[in-house]
Design a protein around this nucleic acid. Structure first.
Lengths: 168, 168
DNA sequence: CCAGCCTGTGTTATATAGTAACCGAACCAG
DNA sequence: CTGGTTCGGTTACTATATAACACAGGCTGG
């Protein structure tokens, strides 16, 4: 699943498309997708796996030798705010938002969940509304108003399940 | 909700009960709930809010002056493995498992979700099977076998919603 | 008995993740 | 050209987590 059945954002042409979509989205939002931010977004999109801030920093240094932690974190904050990337809390790492690839209006605040394969590390984003609804219902039952939800599942992806006969 | 309507695990007598239940569970599992581990568990249970590892370390030092980060982390790892506590990824903090309070057999691996109030910081654990099922279904749809799930919702708790008239 | 192993913990050092605070450049508005 | 605002550079620091080695105690098999 590393590249397999994943979301469209993982295809090579998908990256250019995603960058263009990000551009368009920022324009509409009146936000500035500056060179730095575009570089960081490109690095996140290039990676097939979630990337930590310091891994991004290392890569960024190739283009921007003076880069330091705040450089990356500020760009990441911007990209997160604008729904162009997500943070995977369990990995302290960042991935491109699968929805943002398409310029489908709202990419921002869409429900999303991550499936993280414990074997190969592949992380895929899904956007299941049933999960979101179940969660909202459960929260409402105790009077809790839902804001942002983090849903991350560790397990085994289809490819790894197929490869390893053991059904442990 | 800081102390308010929370789960049973927050009641004073609940802590002793939880410790006893933990003891029993470890006995059955053949695991050693040593003095150190019991101390750390007690500290987690005493707190009404999720506590970071270093906050726990500070408290632990009162009883165990030589304590260092590995001291706490090793105990936390044990407690996590045995389902006696959970980690709240969004807060990098730890809370007692609400299910573990009762000696109801499986406390381990039970579905759980956290509702985190952005206003007052109160964090409550719920155990909603509909959410777990929706998640398992969504994962199965892409051939993913679910292991451990992290579900954490930021939002506003009932008490804070009631206090503040603004419906923002 | 005691050698060897395993588990738990102490201890030191270091790795990784994230932020605070201050500065200056570029831009735009009055 | 002053004064705000946004962006990014720079330094220093805080917070979170782990690696690696040392040692003590309880086993177990010989």
């Amino acid at each position: 699943m590393t590249t397999g059945q994943g979301s469209a954002a993982e295809m090579p042409e998908g990256r250019a498309q995603a960058l263009a979509a990000a551009e368009a989205r920022c324009l509409r939002a009146g936000a500035q997708l500056t060179e730095l931010r575009r570089q960081v977004l490109a690095l996140v999109l290039e990676a097939e796996q979630p990337l930590g801030a310091y891994a991004l920093l290392d890569k960024l240094k190739a283009q921007r030798p003076g880069a330091a932690p705040p450089t990356v974190y500020r760009a990441l904050d911007f990209l997160l705010e604008h729904g162009l990337i997500h943070k995977v809390e369990r990995l302290n790492a960042f991935v491109g938002c699968a929805e943002a690839t398409h310029d489908h209006g709202r990419a921002h605040d869409h429900p999303h969940q991550f499936l993280i394969c414990g074997d190969c590390g592949a992380t895929v984003e899904i956007s299941d509304t049933a999960v979101a609804h179940a969660l909202a219902d459960a929260a409402a039952r105790v009077g809790f108003r839902v804001g942002n939800a983090t849903v991350e599942v560790e397990g085994r992806c289809a490819a790894c399940t197929a490869q390893v006969p053991e059904r442990a």
